[in-house]
Design a protein around this nucleic acid. Structure first.
Length: 681
DNA sequence: TTAGGGTTAG
């Protein structure tokens, strides 16, 4: 429950100042000059120097202007606040930039009793004081002043006064106080309605502190107070939900935004794209791009990179390439920026298009984009995956020669590459080198090195390193210890493995399926495969992770091996897995088998995602069975579930890759026809 | 008076 907090005393160290007896004010009105109007010059005498850094200061006031307006022609180029009442307020405002709340309060406190409670609104000077106190580290003293204003001086409660105090409590992360104030406002004794500002400040502060549920709990209160959240608030909440990985909340919030009649802007749309992508609703995301066009907010580079990253993460490269071409096509002509270069270099690498990745990497500067550490790390990995080991090493050392920052990811990537080249000594050297350079190895580094050494037959060294890690108190994460356990088991040291589990207080009967999932998920291919082959796998997730692992590593034969084992057990695959298997058969040039899987699964009543159909289409193209391509296209054109635009794009790219440009153009023509008939309708 | 989006390693 929220609680009203105790306020700190207004003045931590009371200062003694002259009493405000007549004529003893700490400043004087010294002259009135002219110009366009009455401008008053206040001279702050040395008497007041205890709250001013200089021994005397000048403050210009123009009574013609309303309070808090800035003077159009500030004398001496100064910007001073102006107040019609020409009272202390202006001076306070000016001094507030160089004076502490304590000093100001010391100046003001003698006057406090003289403030009349009969007026409806506290004078500006008091309001300044409140605002200033609330900005101090001891922001709770603003609460004391608020209490004094309401209770002692008897001013009526005001939303603004509460908001000032609440804002700074919220900014300071003091949510019990902030929410306490909110409830106090709404209580019968105060009975003032929190306004839009009250909720905005509180909600955005809660969001900054990642307190999504607390923020959401305020929405019903807002509704009671008839305050509708605005675009800013909604998009803050949506992005927070996304950051916390709760895409369904993000989607729900977006629906509420729409229901409230708020038109999303580009960023809100991009957040929605991210939410859809994370929910795996890529088709909806793809459609949203078109919706954005109709809404007059065409997608930008970020929109595309959001979708691209999601497609790449799901290994849907064909669609990713199509999308990338689309963003660079004459219709869009969107510029490339750093993240999208990073995404594409990564994607090209995974697509076995290292040459394209390389070209993009080295042309970035011409595109006006400076590669960052992520770019370098990705490019090194792509070189390694393409077995361009010389290039990988060269780039790694080039970074050092050019003093480009390297981090633990850089080293982990490079160590992994030395694992591939079976240079376990060099892997070990890099481990030492990074430690010399004060780049802390992490669990990834250790499990990689241990795995490399074990594979090189250096079991002793691996075990010794593992022991060192344990002794050092570094947390042993599941991948690290599963790696070590499999190493022991492979070496026939079952006792060691059991003891390890025992020491780590892990149950010995931790299922092998789980172990497989952990190792496969981490890309520990040797260890996962070894375990997979000697385990009677039951869990679908274990199979899935193995298919993913082998697919990621382009071990197409092994993908098929997992598939066949699943069929033996009697499992049906989901769409994603079928597409992966089809792709593997394609890479193995086993088109007949692929076609058999496709029709068999269809007969079994599997509902395919578009991706499966498109994969099959692409296989037929690779097989140069263009009659088959046309037949399948015809069939899919009549399927209401298939996205027609996407279908045509895929078909066009199938013909393009087969170098049948006329056919590709014919298909593209169909897209254009569809488009024009759509716009005519 | 308030604000939001996409990228790297086991």
């Amino acid at each position: 429950m929220w609680e009203r907090a105790t306020a700190l005393p207004l003045l931590a160290h009371p200062l003694s100042l002259p009493s405000p007896a007549a004529g003893n004010y700490p400043f004087t009105l010294s002259s009135i000059s002219s110009g366009g109007g009455a401008t008053a010059l206040l001279r702050v005498p040395p008497l007041a120097s205890s709250f001013s850094s200089s021994s005397g200061r000048e403050v210009w006031l123009n009574p013609k202007f309303n309070q808090q307006q800035r003077s159009p022609n500030p004398p001496h180029g100064r910007h001073d606040y102006l107040d019609r009442s020409v009272d202390m307020a202006a001076l306070l405002a000016d001094l507030s930039r160089s004076t502490t709340a304590d000093e100001l309060h010391a100046v003001m406190s003698p006057f406090l009793p003289s403030f009349s409670s009969s007026s409806r609104r506290p004078p500006l000077s008091l309001r300044f004081m409140l605002s200033l106190l609330s900005r101090e580290p001891d922001y709770r003293r603003s609460l004391a002043l608020l209490d004094w204003m309401l209770d002692a001086a008897g001013y009526p409660p005001s939303v603004v006064a509460y908001n000032v105090v609440l804002r700074n409590a919220a900014r300071a992360g003091d949510f019990p106080l902030a929410a306490g104030l909110l409830h106090e406002m709404r209580s019968p004794s105060r009975s003032i309605s929190p306004d839009h500002f009250t909720y905005s400040t509180l909600l955005s502060a809660l969001s900054r502190s990642k307190l999504l549920d607390a923020a959401l709990s305020l929405l019903p209160l807002m509704e009671e107070d008839s305050i509708c959240p605005d675009l800013v608030l909604f998009s803050t909440l949506i992005s927070l939900a996304l950051k916390l990985g709760d895409h369904s909340k993000a989607l729900a919030l977006f629906s509420r935004l729409r229901a409230a009649g708020i038109a999303p802007d580009l960023v809100a749309y991009n957040s929605l794209l991210a939410a859809l992508a994370r929910a795996g609703l890529l088709r909806d995301a793809r459609r949203l791009l078109a919706d954005m066009d109709s809404a007059g907010i065409p997608p930008d580079t970020v929109s595309y990179s959001t979708l691209l990253a999601a497609l790449v993460a799901r290994r849907r490269f064909l669609e990713a390439l199509t999308l990338f071409n689309e963003m660079r096509s004459p219709i869009r002509r969107l510029p490339l920026d750093l993240p999208i270069c990073n995404i594409m270099i990564d994607a090209y690498g995974q697509m076995d298009m290292a040459r394209e990745a390389d070209r993009l990497f080295w042309s970035m500067r011409q595109l006006g984009v400076s590669p960052c550490i992520v770019t370098y790390n990705t490019m090194i990995r792509v070189y390694g995956d393409a077995e361009l080991f010389g290039e990988a090493v060269h780039l790694f050392r080039l970074m050092q020669r050019q003093n480009i920052e390297q981090n633990v990811v850089t080293y982990n990537t490079m160590i992994q590459i030395y694992g591939k080249t079976l240079e376990h000594e060099k892997a070990g050297n890099l481990l030492q080198e990074m430690q010399r350079r004060r780049i802390q190895p992490n669990a990834v580094t250790f499990s990689t090195v241990i795995s490399i050494w074990a594979r090189a037959g250096k079991l002793d060294r691996a075990a010794k390193l593992f022991q060192q890690i344990r002794d050092s108190g570094v947390e042993i994460d599941p991948v690290l210890y599963q790696t070590m356990i499999v190493i022991y088991e492979r070496a026939g040291l079952v006792g060691h493995a059991r003891r390890l589990l025992n020491d780590l207080r892990e149950p010995h009967d931790l299922s092998k399926d789980t172990a497989i999932r952990i190792l496969a998920g981490a890309g520990r291919i040797e260890e996962a495969a070894w375990l997979f082959r000697r385990t009677e796998v039951k869990e679908m997730d274990a199979f899935r992770s193995m298919i993913d692992l082998f697919a990621r590593n382009k071990k197409h034969k092994n993908v098929v091996e997992v598939y066949e084992r699943m069929r033996e057990v009697g499992y049906f695959l989901d769409s994603e897995m079928i597409a992966t298997v089809l792709n593997a058969y394609g890479k193995l040039q086993e088109f007949e088998k692929a076609a058999a899987v496709y029709s068999e699964m269809e007969e079994e009543g599997c509902v395919f995602s578009d991706r499966v159909h498109f994969q099959m289409l692409s296989l037929l193209g690779m097989k140069r069975d263009f009659e088959g391509v046309e037949r399948l296209m015809e069939k899919l054109s009549g399927d209401p579930d298939v996205d027609k635009k996407e279908l045509h794009l895929v078909a066009a790219s199938v013909y393009e890759r087969a170098n049948k440009l006329d056919d590709a153009a014919r298909i593209v023509g169909r897209i254009m026809n569809r488009r024009s008939s759509f716009s005519n309708a």
